[in-house]
Design a protein around this nucleic acid. Structure first.
Lengths: 349, 349
DNA sequence: GCGAAGCTGTGTATCGTTACACATATGTCG
DNA sequence: CGACATATGTGTAACGATACACAGCTTCGC
C-alpha cells in the first residue's frame, strides 16, 4: 500500500523496481511468460497487484510494436443508421466474428458526412480498414487510401490500391428481375438513393450510369437489362427512389405508385425490407401478390421467408468476414462473393 | 520523389527536414494550424504530400497525449449476436451518436466468453468503457474495474467503482405485469436466460434471487410481485426460459406451453421480439390475443406497434448515449433512465 | 522612441513500452 | 573436465509524437 496513493499512472518501471527486477524482466512477465522464471514472474505480478498496475499501456505497446491489433470499420454517413439496417448488422457481425477469433478489436469510425471525416480516418489507431459500400465520390475513400494501410471496400466503388469484396450485382439483378418482370407489362423498381443527398422521388428514364452508388448503379443496370429482356423499354419503367433502406419508406412510395392511372404490375426492390413495404402497400390497396403485382426483394432476410418473397440470397455475414480477413492481410484483397436466386411465391411461376 | 522509395513508415521528422522547418513546426501544422504561419504550414503539407506522409501516427500521439479518443464497448459473450439483437443495436447507435459528435472512435471489444477476455479488456486502447448488461459473475467486469478507467455498466450488475445506467426494471415489470396478469388465472412468463449456460427450459418455482443476470432477475421479481398483486402464487407461474432473445425461440417455447393440459391465459415476455413469437404461437394454436391469452412485451419496438402489443417503453438509444457521456466523464456516472407503460390491444382492458 | 504584447519558430525532454544484444548461471555430453 | 547449448536476467536504444519554455522579431500605444 506504500506508494499506491499517488493517482498518476503506474508504469512498468515502478513495478519492476518494487519487484526488484529489471524493467525487461517485468515486460517479459507479461508478454512472454515462458521467458522468465516462475519466481521472477510472480514477484512481478505481486508487485503489480500491490501498486494497482493495470498492465502494459496499450498505446505505448502499439507504438513500440508497430501494430494496434485493431481493425477499423467505416460505415459511411450511414453510421447511426448502420445498426438499424439488418444487412449492415449482418455485415458487422461477420467482421466481429473474425476479429473476435483473432483477438483483434474492431473500431467503428465516427463518420458523419461532415468535413472532418477524413481526419477521423487518419487519426484512427487501426491496422487496416473495412469500408461499407459507399458512393464513387465519397471523400472518405481518398482518406483511407492516403493512410496506406490495408483496406477493403465492400460492394464498391472500386478504388485503386484498395481491395474489393462483393457479388456481381448486375448479374443478380438481371436474374431476379427476369422473375419479377416475367409476363409483366408495367414493371417498376424500388431503389436505394441515387445520390448523396438521399431524397425520395418517383421518376422514369434514369440513366443508371449516372448513379453514384456502385451497388445501386449495378442493380439498376441489371433491372434495365431484365426489362429489356422482357421486351420493355427502360424509359417505361418507373423508379421509386427511397431515401432510406426502410420498410415504411418503401410502403409509402409504393402506395403512391399504385395510385397512378396505370399502376405497375411488377415491382423489383433492392432489399427485402423494401419488398416487405411493397407487399404491405399492395395488399393495403386491395390487390394480390403476385396476381396483380409480382414483387421481388434482395438478401433473403427472415422477412423474405415469412412473406414468400422471391429474392437474391447472399451472405453479408460471410462477406463481412471476407473483408475482415482481407484487411488483416490473411487473404487476397479481391473477392467475388456468392449469390443465388431464391424463387418463392411473390412472383408468377 | 527523392527518398519516398523506401517503404518504411514516414515520420514527422522526415517531413520537417524536407520542408526545412523544425519538427515542432511540422507538428503544429497538423495539430494547431493557427499556431504557424500559412507559409510554414504549406511547406510542411507539401513535403508531407511528396513523401507520402499519412499524418501523425495515432499510437504515438495517444502515448504522448495520454488519451486515445476512443471509447471501448463490451457486449459480453453476446458479441456476434449483438448486431442481430435490435435492442443491442439501438443501444450501440446511441453510443455511436455521442462518439461521432465528439470525434471519438468506438471500439467493440472482441469478447467471446473465452478465458482471455480479460486480456482483451486490458489491452484495449480506449479511454473508457461501456459494458452492456451482463451477469453478476462476469469476469470481464473485474478486468474492466482493474484498468481503472472510467466505465459504465448498462442494466447491471452494480459494481463498485463503475457507473450504472438503466431503468428500474422491477418497477416496470410489476407495472406491465399488472396489465398482463389482470383477470388471468394461469399466468406465465417468457424469460431471458437465467445463467451463463443459456439453455432453454420450461419450469416453475424459480427463485428470482438466484438469477445471475440483474436485468432478468429484476424483471422476474417484478413479475412475481405482479402475480402476487393479482392473487396468484409465484410457484404457480410457469417460466419459459429462452436461450436467446429471439422471436423464433419464444414461438417454439410458447407452442410448448400451449400444449399443457392447463395452458396459460396470460404471458409476460421480456422483449417485444419474444412477445411477437408468443403472439404468433398463440394464433397458430388457434387462440386469440388477448381473448384467450393476454400478452405483453418490452421495449416498444416497431413490432410492438404492428402487433398492438402492450409493452414497456424505454429508449435504449438514449441510454446508450447516456452511458457514452458518462464513460467520457461528461456526466455523473449513475443514471436512472425513464420508462413508461404503453397499453395496447394485446392485454384485456 | 521604448517597453509591452503578440506572433512564429525552435530544442529538449518525455510519454511507457519492447527489441536487441549481451552477460551470467546452469546443465549436458563426450 | 572443458566445450557448448540452454535458461534467465539486464542495459540501452529506439518507436513517433507533443508539451513546454524560451528566443527572435514584429507591432502598437503613448
Amino acid at each position: 500500500m506504500e506508494s499506491s496513493a499517488d493517482s498518476k499512472r503506474v508504469t512498468l518501471a515502478q513495478v519492476a523496481e518494487l519487484a526488484g527486477v529489471s524493467v525487461m524482466t517485468a515486460s517479459y512477465a507479461y508478454n512472454r511468460p515462458e521467458r522468465v522464471s516462475d519466481r521472477a514472474r510472480s514477484k512481478v505480478l505481486d508487485a503489480a497487484e500491490r501498486l494497482g498496475y493495470a498492465g502494459p499501456d496499450p498505446s505505448a505497446r502499439s507504438l513500440r510494436r508497430g501494430s494496434t491489433r485493431t481493425l477499423g470499420v467505416v460505415m459511411g454517413e450511414h453510421l447511426s443508421y448502420a445498426f438499424e439496417d439488418p444487412e449492415a448488422a449482418s455485415f458487422l457481425a461477420g467482421i466481429a466474428d473474425v476479429c473476435a477469433d483473432r483477438g483483434y478489436g474492431m473500431t467503428i469510425l465516427p463518420i458523419t458526412g461532415a468535413a472532418d471525416d477524413g481526419r477521423r480516418v487518419t487519426e484512427a489507431a487501426v491496422d487496416g480498414f473495412v469500408v461499407w459500400t459507399t458512393s464513387d465520390d465519397d471523400p472518405v475513400l481518398s482518406a483511407v487510401r492516403a493512410v496506406k494501410r490495408p483496406a477493403v471496400v465492400h460492394g464498391g466503388p472500386e478504388v485503386a490500391g484498395l481491395g474489393l469484396v462483393g457479388i456481381d450485382n448486375r448479374a443478380a439483378a438481371r436474374a431476379v428481375g427476369a422473375l419479377a418482370f416475367a409476363g409483366a407489362e408495367r414493371p417498376a423498381v424500388v431503389s436505394f438513393p441515387l445520390s448523396r443527398d438521399r431524397i425520395s422521388t418517383i421518376t422514369t428514364g434514369i440513366d443508371p450510369a449516372d448513379v453514384l452508388f456502385p451497388v445501386t448503379r449495378e442493380r439498376l443496370e441489371g433491372y434495365r437489362l431484365a426489362a429489356e429482356d422482357a421486351g420493355i423499354a427502360w424509359r417505361d419503367v418507373t423508379v421509386a427512389v427511397c431515401a432510406r433502406n426502410d420498410t415504411a419508406e418503401a410502403e409509402r412510395l409504393t402506395a403512391a405508385l399504385l395510385t397512378a392511372p396505370e399502376p405497375p404490375d411488377a415491382i423489383a426492390a433492392m432489399s427485402d425490407q423494401q419488398a416487405a413495404g411493397v407487399v404491405h402497400a399492395v395488399r393495403a390497396a386491395g390487390r394480390a401478390v403476385p396476381g396483380d403485382v409480382a414483387v421481388t426483394g434482395w438478401d433473403d432476410a427472415a422477412v423474405a421467408e415469412q412473406l414468400g418473397l422471391t429474392t437474391v440470397a447472399q451472405s453479408l455475414r460471410d462477406q463481412g468476414a471476407a473483408c475482415a480477413r482481407a484487411a488483416l492481410g490473411e487473404t487476397p484483397d479481391a473477392h467475388a462473393a456468392e449469390w443465388s436466386l431464391v424463387p418463392r411465391t411473390s412472383t408468377r411461376p
